[in-house]
């Protein structure tokens, strides 16, 4: 393997690790920065923002809650996959793609319900983590 390939491989692993860590850590930070819900997490947070922002078509509070918990869960799964098979492997890329999409959906939902300006550090970290995971899936090609 040439040096460039090794560097890309290492970068993919590190990006995936950081991305997964970001998604996991987002569960411990506030997703709403100000106003109602800014002190809440999890289903309390979702219940609050849904109560304020109304319903999104096809996305009930229960589904949004599940989506919110999927974000850190996929981050943890990314760690597991990268640790076992590397960021370049098919399973890791699948996890990265799923995590990126899920995080994107969750953030879009929160923007719709609470407003973009109200997004807190949890949402921003999740966004960064999702982007890093997606990047890790593409940075190394066999």
């Amino acid at each position: 393997m040439d040096d460039e390939s090794r560097r890309r491989l290492l970068a993919a692993d590190l990006l995936a690790t950081a991305g997964g860590g970001g998604l996991v850590a987002s569960a411990f930070l506030h997703w709403v920065r100000s106003g109602p819900g800014n002190g809440l997490r999890g289903h309390d947070l979702v219940d609050t923002v849904v109560a304020l922002g109304g319903a999104l078509p096809g996305l009930s509070a229960a589904r949004l809650t599940a989506l919110w918990y999927l974000v850190p869960a996929l981050g943890a799964l990314a760690w597991l996959s990268v640790g076992l098979t590397g960021a370049h492997s098919l399973p890791s890329r699948a996890v990265a793609a799923t995590a990126g999409a899920t995080t994107g959906f969750a953030i879009v939902a929160f923007v719709q319900l609470a407003g973009f300006a109200a997004l807190g550090p949890g949402a921003l970290l999740a966004a960064a983590g999702g982007a890093a995971l997606l990047a890790s899936a593409f940075i190394y090609r066999t």
């Binding site: 997964g20 996991v24 943890a76």
Partner: peptide, 17 residues
């Protein structure tokens, strides 16, 4: 180190669950 990362991922997954 990657094995440790895998273990941490498994633990984090269980914790999130």
């Amino acid at each position: 180190a990657w094995s440790i990362l895998a273990a941490a991922g498994a633990a984090a997954l269980a914790g999130v669950g």
